[in-house]
């Protein structure tokens, strides 16, 4: 069974990188360029997991997480934050918003996939 992952990042490079790594790992990947797009594509993507950047135009990662948690259908979907920083403040803020966990860039493909599998319980 392939799990569907929605990756939200304003950087096309990161989107490309993330989707390539995930596709190779056997996931189905949906991409969005910011929080607004991410929230908008929820029903299309119907994700088992969401990966999001924090700093994005229009709606940032925190906003996206809060919005997803506020939806009925996707409120329990795991959301991983992909970030360069790993300060306790950022983690606390992400957690407060409802983030499941975080992956710090630069990530290593194997670790990246294993974290996702772990969160998905696969």
């Amino acid at each position: 069974m392939t799990a569907r992952i929605l990756a939200v990042d304003d950087s096309p490079t990161i989107r490309g990188l993330v989707s390539s790594v995930l596709r190779r790992a056997g996931f189905e990947v949906y991409l969005a360029g910011d929080g607004v797009e991410g929230v908008g594509s929820l029903s299309d993507a119907d994700p088992a997991l969401i990966i999001t950047d924090i700093n994005m135009p229009r709606m940032d990662g925190f906003g996206l997480i809060e919005a997803v948690r506020a939806t009925g259908e996707y409120s329990s979907v795991p959301i991983l934050v992909l970030t360069t920083e790993s300060s306790p403040e950022l983690k606390a803020r992400a957690r407060n918003a409802g983030a499941t966990g975080w992956i710090v860039k630069p990530f290593e493909d194997k670790h990246f996939v294993s974290v996702i599998n772990r969160v998905l319980g696969r």
Partner: peptide
């Protein structure tokens, strides 16, 4: 823990 999208099922499975 549940509110953050984590789930013991996943953790125990890991």
């Amino acid at each position: 823990l549940y509110r953050s999208g984590n789930d013991p099922v996943a953790l125990l499975f890991s």
